[in-house]
Computed example of a mutant assay.
Amino acid sequence: MNPSAIEVSAETFYIAAQSQPEQHKFVFAYTIRIQNNSLEKVQLLRRHWLITDANGLQVEVDGEGVVGEQPELAPNESYSYTSGAVLETPVGTMQGHYIMQDNKRNEFQVAIPLFRLALPNILN
C-alpha cells in the first residue's frame, strides 16, 4: 500500500462561544477529510496528534480510531469527521499521523499535514 494514496485535509473553526480569552482558553473545531485514492479498501486504526500552541507548549494525543470510530474506506471513498482542541493561546498548530491497514492487514502510516488553529483575522 502506498500511503500517499490516502489524502488528508483539514478545515478549522474558532468557537468563540466556548472560549474564554481572559482565562487563556481558546476553543477550536476542525474537520478532517480522509480520501482513499488507492485501489483497495483501507481502515483507520489509530491516531497520533502533536498540538503546539504559540508559547511552544506541546501536547501529544494517541488513541484508537477517530471520534469513537475505526472507519473503513473503499477505493475512491472519503470519510469526514469533526473534533476539537483547546489552546492557551489564540494561535497554534496541529499535525500527526494515522495508523491504517490495508485489506491484507498490513499496517502503514499516513501523515496528517500541519494545519493552523487561529482566531479569525489574527494572522495575515
Rank of each mutant, 00 (worst) to 15 (best):
Q109S: 15
E40M: 11
P113K: 09
P120N: 15
E69N: 04
G56N: 01
K104F: 10
W49S: 10
Q58K: 14
V91H: 09
P71T: 01
R33T: 14
M1T: 14
E60A: 11
L87A: 07
V59Y: 04
T52H: 08
I32S: 06
E22W: 06
T93F: 15
V8E: 05
D62Q: 15
S9Y: 06
S80T: 14
G92N: 10
L114H: 09
V67A: 06
V61L: 09
T89F: 07
N36W: 08
L73V: 01
V86G: 03
A5N: 15
A85W: 07
V42L: 04
Q20S: 12
P75M: 04
E72G: 01
G92C: 08
I112D: 05
S9E: 13
E60Y: 08
L73F: 02
A29W: 03
I112C: 09
V42Q: 06
S83G: 02
T82N: 02
L117K: 02
N55T: 15
E107A: 11
S19N: 01
G56K: 03
N2F: 13
V42S: 03
V8Q: 01
M1H: 12
T12M: 00
H48L: 12
V59W: 02
L114R: 15
E7Y: 12
R105P: 00
S9H: 06
F26E: 01
N55I: 13
E7I: 15
L50A: 14
L119F: 07
R47V: 06
V66E: 07
A29M: 06
A16F: 02
P113I: 10
L119H: 07
T82M: 08
I122F: 11
K25Y: 05
Q18I: 01
T12V: 02
A85I: 08
G65Q: 02
N36D: 07
Q58V: 13
G84S: 15
S38R: 06
A111P: 00
Q18H: 05
K104H: 12
H48F: 13
A111S: 15
G63C: 05
D62M: 14
A29S: 07
E60T: 12
I34P: 00
V110I: 11
A10S: 12
M94F: 07
A74H: 09
I15G: 02
Y98I: 04
S38Y: 03
D53E: 11
T82V: 07
I122H: 08
V59F: 03
Y98R: 04
D62H: 14
I51H: 06
F115V: 09
P75H: 08
N37K: 15
G63K: 09
Q43G: 08
V61F: 02
Q23F: 03
V86Y: 03
E11G: 02
V67Y: 04
P71K: 01
R33E: 12
I112L: 10
S80I: 06
E64G: 05
A54N: 13
L45P: 00
L57Q: 10
Q18L: 11
R116Q: 11
D53F: 06
G56D: 02
I112W: 06
E11I: 10
H24K: 14
E69Y: 03
E64D: 12
Q101G: 03
T52E: 14
